[in-house]
Amino acid sequence: MSRVPSPPPPAEMSSGPVAESWCYTQIKVVKFSYMWTINNFSFCREEMGEVIKSSTFSSGANDKLKWCLRVNPKGLDEESKDYLSLYLLLVSCPKSEVRAKFKFSILNAKGEETKAMESQRAYRFVQGKDWGFKKFIRRDFLLDEANGLLPDDKLTLFCEVSVVQDSVNISGQNTMNMVKVPECRLADELGGLWENSRFTDCCLCVAGQEFQAHKAILAARSPVFSAMFEHEMEESKKNRVEINDVEPEVFKEMMCFIYTGKAPNLDKMADDLLAAADKYALERLKVMCEDALCSNLSVENAAEILILADLHSADQLKTQAVDFINYHASDVLETSGWKSMVVSHPHLVAEAYRSLASAQCPFLGPPRKRLKQS
């Protein structure tokens, strides 16, 4: 649940008159999402009104509101027999009622949201009550392989729920002597030191190019640089560091992050930047690179990204790559990247197969709970 924001200063709310007192009302909304995959969808019983329910879910471990999704594969009634019906059901509720908006969509073979439908307002739910769409999607369109909505005969539904909580009022009075504290510009100011090479005390040599930097900042941000300058190493004695395995453009992006906490060109060089972040123990930059690479996972590059993640101990990226390969196994196994990995990294192939087997055979063990970014 997000923290209630402070109200904007009255002088910034309007260029008009300023009242002596004010009130700011925040209506709290808890948002969460749920993904439900139905394997072997074409084998569902086709009687009209037949119901399939998901397991229950909530916004978190401490949330007492429990929900589930309900599907009628062949419609709810005679009117909707040519459609799939989809509903959000409130299973248990400690209150007399709650209000919530919802959005349903289908994830296609690429994991993209399609055929989205959402409620136009927050509906009133009581325990045992459901709301949804009797005519969510035509069955003939859903079952047509050309539309790519049932890869490997799996129907994957994605649901986003927004639950309306209580409202909170914050009130106060205006004073004539309003003090406005300026925003912190530390990142910009440190970035200026790097860009202008002011007050530098060490030189970093990268592929024949020299960059002036500040030992204190490098040591504070990177345990690797800290070790170089702290001990009686040649880098500490000469205040000069030779860097041979990072390209200059990648190095500059890494230094921008060290000084400012930002990497504006990360998406263009996420793979190389991940390697640099791993070498210099820049954990936050490493996770930022993992996130960017996750966003660009595809059938063509899944094997290469899995190898990269394994090489640099990028655990979150590795998990996402394995899950992606499992979901698109029939396509990924035909790529040149996968065939190369079979020869060069057989242990990763074995890991992917083990994960695929456990996903398809849940009876082999208890269900695993899916539970950071600093």
Rank of each mutant, 00 (worst) to 15 (best):
S42D: 07
D144G: 07
M288G: 03
A302M: 09
S336G: 02
E97V: 14
V18N: 07
D82S: 11
L204C: 15
S105D: 12
Q26W: 06
V29H: 14
S119R: 01
P151L: 03
Q173L: 02
A321N: 03
G60D: 07
A227F: 14
L142T: 03
I217R: 01
A19H: 07
C44H: 03
F57G: 01
S33C: 11
S59M: 01
G132M: 00
V349K: 00
K28S: 13
Q120W: 09
N326R: 07
L308V: 02
A116F: 06
E242Y: 11
H328V: 11
V342R: 09
S222E: 00
F363K: 15
P17V: 07
C203R: 10
S295R: 12
Y83G: 13
K103Q: 15
G128M: 15
S162R: 13
H345L: 03
A227S: 09
L282R: 00
K318S: 05
C68T: 15
L266P: 08
P8H: 13
D153H: 04
N40F: 02
Y83C: 11
C23H: 01
P248L: 04
R45F: 06
Y353E: 00
G49P: 01
H328T: 03
A352F: 07
E50D: 02
C361V: 15
N169C: 03
P5H: 01
D140R: 04
N72P: 07
A350R: 12
Y87T: 13
T156C: 09
L69D: 00
L190N: 09
D140G: 06
S355K: 02
A19D: 03
L306I: 06
K53V: 04
G208T: 14
A352K: 00
V299W: 04
K129C: 11
D77P: 15
M254P: 00
L142N: 12
C203Y: 08
F225N: 00
D278Y: 09
S2P: 07
F136I: 07
A116K: 09
R240Q: 05
G60M: 08
L311V: 04
P223N: 15
P367R: 14
V343N: 07
S336R: 12
Q373R: 05
F211T: 05
P7N: 12
V29Y: 15
V91I: 04
N174A: 01
M13V: 04
V164E: 08
M288E: 06
Y280V: 01
F133D: 08
K64W: 12
S54E: 04
R368H: 11
D315I: 11
G60C: 05
F257N: 13
L274S: 02
D144P: 02
D63C: 10
D245C: 08
F199I: 15
Y123F: 14
A350P: 03
M35R: 01
V4R: 11
D130G: 01
V179E: 02
L90K: 12
D152V: 13
G128H: 03
P367L: 13
G337I: 09
G132E: 00
P366M: 14
E78K: 10
D77L: 10
S85F: 08
L274Q: 01
L88W: 02
L317W: 00
P362A: 13
G208E: 14
M48S: 02
K135L: 15
G128D: 09
A352Y: 09
R139M: 10
T37I: 05
S236Q: 01
M341F: 14
A281K: 02
T56P: 07
A122C: 05
M255P: 00
Q360R: 13
D323S: 07
F229E: 13
E195V: 04
E351V: 04
S167Y: 12
L348C: 06
I307S: 08
R139A: 05
Y259R: 00
G16F: 15
F43P: 04
G208L: 15
E300M: 05
S236W: 02
E160V: 06
L308D: 08
A219L: 15
S15F: 05
F363E: 15
G337Y: 05
V343Y: 09
A281T: 03
F225W: 15
A11H: 02
K103T: 15
N196Y: 13
L155Q: 14
S197N: 15
E247R: 02
R354A: 09
M228W: 15
M233F: 14
F199T: 15
L282G: 13
S358H: 03
G132W: 00
N196A: 03
L157T: 09
Q127W: 07
D144H: 01
L190V: 07
K81W: 08
K372M: 05
R45H: 02
P5T: 08
P9Y: 02
R370F: 08
L348G: 00
A207E: 11
Q316C: 05
M233I: 13
D272R: 02
T114V: 09
P17I: 07
V179Q: 11
Y327W: 06
S42V: 01
A220F: 15
W22P: 00
T200V: 12
A263D: 05
K372H: 14
L308M: 08
N62Q: 08
A359D: 12
P362V: 15
M233T: 11
Y24E: 07
P346T: 08
L317A: 13
K31S: 09
H214T: 13
Q165G: 08
G192Q: 08
C205T: 15
K74T: 15
V343C: 03
Q316L: 01
R370Q: 14
L333V: 08
V126R: 08
Q165V: 01
K74D: 10
E79Y: 14
N326F: 13
R70G: 11
D130F: 01
F41Y: 06
G337W: 06
I307D: 01
S15M: 10
D245E: 10
A220E: 14
H347F: 05
V4E: 15
V224H: 13
P362L: 10
S358A: 03
S33F: 04
C68D: 09
A116C: 12
K31E: 03
Y123K: 01
R354D: 06
A61T: 02
S374P: 05
D153T: 08
I258N: 01
E242Q: 01
A277T: 07
C184D: 03
M35C: 08
N62A: 09
T156H: 02
K134G: 01
F133H: 11
G261W: 05
V29N: 08
L186Y: 02
K28T: 10
V179D: 09
V161E: 01
E78C: 11
R139Q: 15
S162M: 10
S80W: 11
G16Q: 14
V126C: 14
Y34I: 14
K339S: 10
M269V: 05
